[in-house]
Design a protein around this nucleic acid. Structure first.
Lengths: 111, 111
DNA sequence: GCAATACTGAAGTGATCACTTAACTATTTT
DNA sequence: AAAATAGTTAAGTGATCACTTCAGTATTGC
C-alpha cells in the first residue's frame, strides 16, 4: 500500500503546491488549527480548507475536530512513502553508475 | 538553489504524474531514447515529448540529441533536492515527538 | 440569548493540464 | 533519391486546479 501509484500521485500532487508545502512545513513543527495554518497565507480561509482537503486525502496530514476547532497534524508514514520512492530511483541510478565504474576499471586492468 | 520553492514546485509537479514517474523509473535503470521511453506508455509520442519537457524543466532529467536520437538521463542531484525537503519535514516532526516523549518521561520521573 | 469565532459547502471563474491530431524537419537506411 | 525513422511543433479540447464570494452551521464567550 506504500507503493500504490495512485497514492503516490496524490502525495506528489499535494506537495507540488507552495501553499500546501508551507502548510506541511508548519505542521512539521507541531499540530495547528485551520486558522493557524491559514494565518501566514495570502488567501481566503475557504481556499486553505480546500488545500487541507487535498493534503488529507493524500494521507500526508490527518485532522481531528474538537468543539469548533479542527486540529491538523502531519502523518510521517506518508512522507516516508514519498521519500522512499525517490530514494529508490536515485539509488538505482547511483548503483548503475557504480557498476559502470567497476566495469570500466575492470577492462582497464585487463591491459 | 536546492531550496528554491519554485524549483520544488516544478519537481513535485513533475513527479505527480504516473506517466512521468514511469519515465523516471525507466531512466533510473539507465539512459533511454524518447521512443524507448514512449514504448510502454499508452499515449502518442507527442504526449511523451511533452511529459519529457516537463521533466526537463523540472531539472529531474537532462537530454542530449545526437543525430536523430535524443538520449535522456536522470539528474540525481535534482532527485536529492526533493528527497531532502521531505526528509527535513519528517525529521522535524520526529524530533518534536522525541522531545515530547522526553518531556513526558521527565514529568513522570518527578513523582 | 446574542455576538463572535471557527470553520464548512456550494457555485462560479479563469488558468493550467494532459492529452489528441496533423503537419513538419532532420537523419538514416536502402 | 525515396522511404523509413526519430523526433518536433502548433492548435485544439475537455478535465482538473486554485482560487473567489457568499451563505450557511456549529461552538463558545459575554
Amino acid at each position: 500500500m506504500l507503493h500504490d501509484p495512485a497514492q503516490l500521485d496524490l502525495m506528489f500532487q499535494a506537495l507540488a503546491d507552495p501553499a500546501r508545502r508551507q502548510m506541511v512545513e508548519r505542521l512539521s513543527r507541531g499540530p495547528a488549527s485551520v486558522s493557524q495554518l491559514a494565518e501566514p497565507l495570502a488567501m481566503s480561509l475557504s481556499a486553505v480548507v480546500q488545500h487541507l482537503a487535498v493534503l488529507e486525502t493524500s494521507g500526508l496530514v490527518s485532522t481531528e475536530k474538537l468543539g469548533r476547532v479542527r486540529t491538523c497534524r502531519i502523518e510521517p508514514n506518508a512522507l516516508r512513502a514519498a521519500e522512499h520512492w525517490i530514494n529508490e530511483r536515485r539509488l538505482a541510478w547511483e548503483r548503475r553508475l557504480d557498476r559502470l565504474g567497476d566495469f570500466l576499471t575492470d577492462i582497464n586492468d585487463q591491459t
